[in-house]
Design a protein around this nucleic acid. Structure first.
Lengths: 348, 348
DNA sequence: GCCCTCTATGTAAACGATTACATATTTGTT
DNA sequence: AACAAATATGTAATCGTTTACATAGAGGGC
């Protein structure tokens, strides 16, 4: 491995000068600069990041702590984080954890010294309070909020989004609107539930406990919940699922039971995953700009890093957007765009 | 930040002893061990990874270079990689890149010194040859093979999987079987195409160029390709899409055109993403164990790391499995499993 | 010609860990 | 009782950087 000394020797200069040239610090003659850059390039010199971080106590790496995520959400959020991080010359160290206290603490410790800051995605409510370990490095909480407000946090406008969707259902004449909830321990899920109830009350409808079915954000539980709802003597006329996966499970259940959507029962989801528009019928949903969520989280974190964690804490919320398709009776003027190659996708 | 010196001072020992205790190297008395461990724990000492990597020239970190991936594939593969890496005490440094030469080289350089090895996922065929930069650290090529065979590689049994699926279609009486291809520059896509053609020839059918439509693994291009196929004077009776996303796009197009699946046209995909079974009709597909793919890749890489990249190179292939559902006329005895909580999913 | 100020470069001390070598103590063998 | 071997601990060199400080020459003002 070629070190700065090798470069210095080859260029007949001292290591200090080489360092100065390569970091653009201190004054150097134009000529020396050219020479050293040329030599370093030719020798394929790459500074040892460990040595550098030892002396500068910076790592130029950001940690990301994620729970067991599935699907689109995961990839999109990393996409957003990585592009922003790269733009600022930072790397991403990713670690999956379970959301319980010892796991998160272990992961945090393991990252210590390796990263300049951490984004923690812990939708699990319990994990929140546990996170109150006063961290010396900046932390951005994603999809959950810390009561102690010791850290920055970034969340989705869950409540508003859900409220808008349910209001849309009310506007189309629905009065018996069911919800397939997410886990009661999940922050996003509880906020969406809150939005649902608020919208109902806004419309003068009293939320009914029987219309609130539990799920866990998987297609399977959406399917099961829909079956339950169908067996009720007074069926709902609309189902709002707290995420798209469950909505898709519900659609599948309705289809098998021969229930027409949206004529007999309308269905709506949340997240607006790419597949939503390819469902039968195309699924109305609440669009979440997941990629931007990742971008913004890293921006907030970098702000904390540059201010050495000594900055006023912020709580931000990214806004959602209602996307109405046929599953709630929307006109679905929207067509699958023909051959867009905008997004170079690589699967498998 | 508390260093090893602080711990040594607090425990009234030398740094050497502390290091020995914490690393389990060299002989130490039982009592000293207990004491030091206790003090270190109380002081929340975490060794500085930079300093450690400087002297040991190990980073305990693996790099992962990924192209612009979408959806399930991304999250699953990281899941597999991370769990295996964690089990061996390694971290994952993730970086997205475009698949062209300068980008990959830049990313590789940026990772140098930070990681002990790299997994490169470059389904893009061009990137392969470019990758022949002789790397001093071990590299595992994922979803592509290097002609030079300087590195280990791990791929999917694309050809066999596609062949089995198309043979299944033939067995059900289909003779005019179309394919929606992936990009010709994509390794997986070309292999799947090869499997398709082989299966046809096995059955004594001559592949027709008009039945081979191009796509790029997105729903949109699957949709567009299906529309084209429908406009043919001699329509195919079956469509094999090179991945599920395109198959789903095709299903959507057929539905809108009032074509019944599988009665008029059968449809099959590849990947078996979780949503496949929730399609209408449930989509037959070739199951790819994505998570295991990630696991195996890391195992191979770690093998290279422990052998200091001085080991016989290997080419491995993970096997696929045919999953027949209704979209190809399968009986679909399979029901969405009721409320399985096996996979704790967290989506937005 | 002297002193001051720049500019360009070099010297050497950190940073925090590991580890070869040295030293001191204990144990075992004869 | 003497010495070898084993055990426990300490000392100091080392890894590859950055950077404060030192040095040296060049130019300018008087």
């Amino acid at each position: 491995m070629v070190t700065i000394k090798d470069v210095a020797r080859a260029a007949n200069m001292s290591v200090a000068t080489v360092s100065r040239v390569l970091n653009g610090s201190g004054p150097v003659s134009e000529e020396t600069g050219r020479l050293i850059r040329e030599v370093a390039g030719r020798m394929r010199y790459v500074p040892h990041s460990g040595a550098r971080s030892l002396i500068t106590s910076k790592t130029e790496t950001l940690g990301v702590l994620l729970p067991d995520l599935y699907g689109e959400f995961f990839s999109e959020i990393i996409r957003g984080m990585d592009s922003t991080a790269q733009r600022h010359g930072f790397h991403l160290l990713i670690s999956r954890t379970y959301a319980d206290k010892p796991e998160i603490e272990t992961a945090m410790r393991a990252m210590r010294g390796r990263v300049d800051g951490v984004v923690v995605l812990s939708p699990d409510l319990d994990a929140d309070s546990l996170l109150n370990l006063p961290s010396t490095i900046p932390v951005v909480l994603l999809c959950s909020v810390s009561k102690g407000s010791q850290m920055d946090s970034l969340t989705i406008q869950n409540c508003r989004g859900a409220r808008e969707m349910v209001t849309h259902l009310v506007d189309r004449g629905h009065r018996r609107i069911a919800i397939i909830k997410g886990s009661p321990r999940n922050y996003d899920a509880t906020e969406r539930l809150r939005g649902y109830r608020t919208a109902l009350r806004d419309a003068g409808i009293t939320p009914e406990v029987l219309l609130e079915r539990e799920g866990d954000f998987t297609e399977a539980t959406g399917y099961a919940a829909a079956i339950e709802l169908l067996s009720m003597r007074k069926r709902p006329t609309a189902i709002f699922a707290a995420n798209d996966a469950m909505a898709i499970g519900a659609l599948s259940a309705l289809r098998e039971s021969g229930v027409r959507v949206p004529e007999e029962i309308a269905v709506a989801g949340f997240d607006d995953i790419p597949l939503a528009r390819y469902m039968d019928p195309p699924l109305s949903s609440v669009h979440v700009p997941i990629c931007e969520l990742g971008e913004r989280a890293v921006e907030m974190l970098l702000h904390g890093v540059t201010h050495k964690n000594d900055h006023p804490r912020r709580r931000e919320r990214v806004s959602t957007e209602l996307v109405i398709r046929r599953s709630t009776g929307g006109e679905s003027a929207e067509r699958p765009p023909p051959r867009t190659l905008k997004r170079e996708t690589v699967s498998t």
